[in-house]
């Protein structure tokens, strides 16, 4: 049972990095993109379905690994707070940038997306380096690694979603290339998780809790997966929507 929930934890972490990785990557690339509206529009329909993987990961930590949750978050207090604040700023940028007219308003909140995305990438580096016991400087360096991986993934996403468009310098990428860049985006998270797998499993909740969680959650996994697939089938092609 612990192994199943460790698997769910790993899938959610990998999924978050593979999916939200390109949203954050596109956020990082916005200052270097000519058509920012189009770039934000490309990730727009995916963001809500992507960022929620981390919300789910937090829930699994709380429910299935509560000891780990308390230890990890409180031991890396500052950098977790930075991660949350960056996330908030990035989301505010997405939701607000088109709500009023005027170039100043939109440029300000577009800037918030980039600042938030940079904060997310760097603080993820800090959290991941921190849990394997690395010093602060390593965390910063690891953050740069995460940022570069996300930027590459974001760029590949744009070249896949809008092939030939100027948002990705006219490049065209297929689904296989996007898969490869997803693996690149996942790697910075999966390496530390693999190293720590034993410690994580040791901190799982007792089987009474895990049984209840399994009984209630597992039957719905096809529904969760189906909803995600529906997003990709609906928004992978066609005109870029304009709400965000």
């Amino acid at each position: 049972m612990e192994i199943i929930w460790f698997g769910i934890l790993a899938v959610l972490l990998a999924g978050y990095f593979a999916l939200e990785g390109f949203d954050i990557g596109v956020g990082l690339l916005l200052p270097f993109t000519g058509d920012r509206d189009k770039a934000v529009g490309a990730i727009g329909p995916f963001v809500l379905a992507n960022e929620v993987w981390l919300v789910a990961l937090g829930g699994v930590l709380l429910g299935a690994f509560p000891l780990l949750e308390g230890e990890v978050l409180s031991a890396h207090y500052g950098v977790v707070v930075a991660l949350l604040l960056s996330w908030i700023v990035r989301d505010a940028g997405l939701w607000f940038r088109r709500r009023l007219d005027g170039p100043g308003w939109r440029a300000f909140w577009t800037g918030a997306i980039t600042v938030g995305s940079l904060g997310l990438a760097l603080s993820w580096g800090g959290v991941l380096a921190g849990i394997i016991g690395g010093p602060a400087l390593l965390g910063l360096a690891y953050g740069v690694v995460v940022a570069v991986a996300f930027a590459f993934h974001g760029w590949t996403f744009l070249a896949w979603r809008l092939p030939g468009d100027a948002v990705a310098q006219g490049a065209r990428r297929g689904g296989a290339a996007l898969g490869v860049s997803a693996v690149v985006a996942m790697a910075p998270a999966l390496v530390p998780l693999g190293v720590l797998a034993g410690d994580v499993v040791d901190r799982a909740a007792p089987s009474a809790t895990l049984s209840v969680l399994s009984l209630i959650v597992l039957p719905f996994v096809p529904v969760l997966a189906g909803a995600q697939v529906w997003v990709w089938r609906s928004f992978g092609k066609g005109a870029v929507p304009t709400f965000f």
């Binding site: 809500l48 379905a49 919300v55 809790t209 959650v217 909803a227």
Partner: peptide, 25 residues
């Protein structure tokens, strides 16, 4: 956490995960 965490985990996985995905749709 072994007790209190369970409903919160169910909330994130079965409720909010779907809510956010369907809201985007």
């Amino acid at each position: 956490g072994d007790v209190f965490g369970a409903p919160l985990a169910i909330e994130t996985l079965l409720a909010f995960f779907l809510e956010s995905t369907f809201l985007g749709l």
